[in-house]
Computed example of a mutant assay.
Amino acid sequence: MTLVPLGDRVVLKQVEAEETTKSGIVLPGQAQEKPQQAEVVAVGPGGVVDGKEVKMEVAVGDKVIYSKYSGTEVKMDGTEYIIVKQNDILAIVK
């Protein structure tokens, strides 16, 4: 199965959380904060949202930073994805 987003939505695959800090301390699973960085897996076609034309500014394969409490989490084939609106994406990491 594949996810095909509609409108101005984007499907993201979250980057793995770091298991150690920069100083070498190993973090247990509960202490790990979910990263806000993800890879774009699929991009919707854009279109008209609230009477304004939306041009998609991200592409498949881009690494992005998204808002902390945005999106809908979906699990498919054992992989977790997040579906967000394009305006919930804050930056593209280059």
Rank of each mutant, 00 (worst) to 15 (best):
M1G: 11
V54F: 05
K75W: 03
T20S: 07
E39H: 06
Y66D: 07
V54T: 09
V48M: 10
K22C: 07
V48A: 05
A59C: 01
A17W: 00
V43G: 08
K52I: 13
P5N: 01
K55W: 10
T21Q: 02
I25K: 13
G24A: 01
L90W: 09
A17T: 02
D8C: 09
T21A: 02
D88Q: 13
G71D: 05
V10Q: 07
Y81T: 14
T21G: 07
V41I: 14
T72W: 11
P28I: 02
Y81Q: 07
G78P: 06
V26S: 00
A17M: 02
I83W: 06
D8V: 01
V15R: 12
V40H: 00
D8A: 12
V58L: 05
S70V: 00
L27P: 01
Q30E: 04
I83K: 10
V74E: 10
K94A: 14
V43S: 03
G29W: 08
I25F: 03
I89Q: 01
A17R: 08
K22F: 10
G71W: 02
S67Y: 06
E80L: 10
M56C: 08
D77C: 07
V54D: 12
K63I: 08
V40W: 04
P28N: 15
S70K: 01
G44K: 04
P28W: 00
D62T: 00
E16Q: 11
K94L: 09
L90C: 00
Q37C: 13
V93D: 10
E16I: 08
D50Y: 06
I83C: 07
I25E: 00
Q37H: 14
K68I: 11
T21C: 03
I65R: 08
T79C: 03
K68P: 06
V54I: 15
E53Y: 09
E18R: 05
V54Q: 10
A31L: 11
E73P: 07
P45N: 10
E73M: 09
V43C: 00
I92R: 09
Q37W: 13
K85V: 06
Q32D: 01
T20H: 04
Q36M: 12
K22L: 14
G29S: 13
E39V: 11
K63R: 07
Q14N: 13
D62M: 05
I92Q: 06
K68H: 15
I83H: 11
L12M: 09
V15C: 11
I65V: 11
P35G: 13
Y81S: 05
V60W: 06
A31C: 04
Q86A: 12
Q30F: 10
V4Y: 08
G71H: 02
G44W: 05
G78C: 05
P35I: 00
V10E: 10
I65K: 12
V74T: 11
